[in-house]
Write a protein that binds this DNA or RNA. Sequence first.
DNA 1: TCAAAAGTGTTCTTGATACACCCATGC
DNA 2: GCATGGGTGTATCAAGAACACTTTTGA
Lengths: 229, 229
Amino acid sequence: MPHTYQYPRAALTVDCVVFGFDEGELKVLLIERALEPFKGKWALPGGFVRVDETLDDAARRELKEEAGLKDVFLEQLYTFGTVARDPRERVVSVAHYALVQLAAHDTKAATDAADARWYPISKVPKLAFDHADILAAALARLKSKVRYQPIGFELLPPKFTLSQLQHLYEAVLENELDKRNFRKKVLSYGLLVPLKETQMTGRHRPAQMFRFDTIKYEKLKKRGFNFEV
Amino acid sequence: MPHTYQYPRAALTVDCVVFGFDEGELKVLLIERALEPFKGKWALPGGFVRVDETLDDAARRELKEEAGLKDVFLEQLYTFGTVARDPRERVVSVAHYALVQLAAHDTKAATDAADARWYPISKVPKLAFDHADILAAALARLKSKVRYQPIGFELLPPKFTLSQLQHLYEAVLENELDKRNFRKKVLSYGLLVPLKETQMTGRHRPAQMFRFDTIKYEKLKKRGFNFEV
DNA sequence: TCAAAAGTGTTCTTGATACACCCATGC
DNA sequence: GCATGGGTGTATCAAGAACACTTTTGA
C-alpha cells in the first residue's frame, strides 16, 4: 500500500494496565524492563502496534506475549501523546486497561514470566516513561466505571461470596461500605444467582456462593438498565 | 532523532466532532472533502498529527485551519484503529470532541470556509470513512458527560437564560424536562449568578439572565463536588 | 465456649417526581 | 385583551443512609 503522507511519523504503541484482585487488595501487573531506556525499571506491559492489526488486537497480543494472559476483559482507556514521553523518539501510546480473575492459584501462572510481578496498588514502585500517569488514569476509570457497570465481576472468580464482592468494591472505591445496604442493593437487581455451594474459609459460618447472571444482564442492558452500586 | 523501530508505521491523525447549539438544536460542524478518497463527501474536520506536536495541539491546529475556531473546549474521545478505516493505508485516528459557543451572529464567522457547514444532528448526511461511528461515540459521550459535569455551558453564550439552558439539556439528552424541577436543581448549587440584565425576545415577559460561576465551580470541584442534572 | 465472619429489617432522611397557575411584555 | 414564554411551591414517593443483633462454624 503506498504511503500518501511522507512526513516523519510517530511510532504507535499500546500499553496495558492489568488489574487483579487478590488477598483483599487491588493489584496491577508490571514488567521489569530488560532494555534501555529505563532498563531495570518497572513498566506497564505493552509494545508496538503492527500495521495490520487493530489496537485491541495489539493490546491482546502484548498481554499474551508478555504476561501469558488471554481472554481477559479489555477496554481502551486514553491515548497518551505528549511529545517527549519516550526519550528515543516520538511515541504515541494507546493505553488500555484489563481486568483479570486472579484466583490465588493463578497468581503464579500469570507471573511465570520472570520479569512480571503483581504489585498492590499502594506499593507500586516508580514507573518508566509516563506510566504513572497511565496507571492513575486507569485507576480513575476503574473507580468511576465500577459504580455503574458490573465490571467488578471480571476481577472475581465465577463463583464468589457477597463478602468477596463487597471487599472488592471497597478496595476499588477506597471506602468502606455498609454490609446490609450493600447486600440489599446488589441483590435487588436479581442478577446474582445463589448457588448450592458454600464457601468455608475458617472457623466461622460458611458463606453462600453466587454467580453473576451475564445472560440476564445483557437482556436488561438492552432495555437501558444500569447496574449501579 | 533516530528511528529505533523500522517496521511500517500507521499514519496518525486527529478528527474532531465539533458541537454547537443554535436555534434550539444541537449541531455538528462538517467539512466537504476536496480530495479523494470520499471527494465531495462530508467529513469531520481533522488531519495528520505532526511529529513535534501533541494530540491536543494537533486537534486545535486543525480546528483553526479548517474551521477558524480557537479557544474552544476540547477533549479527547477515543482512538479509532480498525485496519481498513482509510482505503489508502493504515491510519489510526485519535478522535476528539469540541464544544463551541455558537451565538447566532457567529454562525457565519465559524462557517466562512466555503466547505464547512453546521448540520443539525438529526440531518447529518452520510459521512466519509468511519466518521459516523466517531460522531455516534461523541454524541454518547456528550450525553453522558453533560449529566455530571457542567460542560453544557460551553455551548451557550456567557450570559444565558434558564430556558436556554433547559432547551440545551433537552436537545442533548433527547427528552423533555420539567421546568420547575430543572430550575430548582440547577439553581440549588449556587453556581448560576443572576445578572442585572434581562433578555427580551418577543412579546412576553423578559427572561432573567445568568452566568456560570466558573471560579466557584473550580473550588467546589476540588472538594469532590459534582454538577449533576 | 469463644472467636470470627455470615446473615438479616426497620427507621429516618434526602432527593426525585408530579403538577397548575400568575406574570410581564409586544402586538 | 390576548398570545407567548417566564416564573414560582407543595405534596407524594422512592431510594439511600444509619444502625445491632443472631447464626454457624472450627478450634
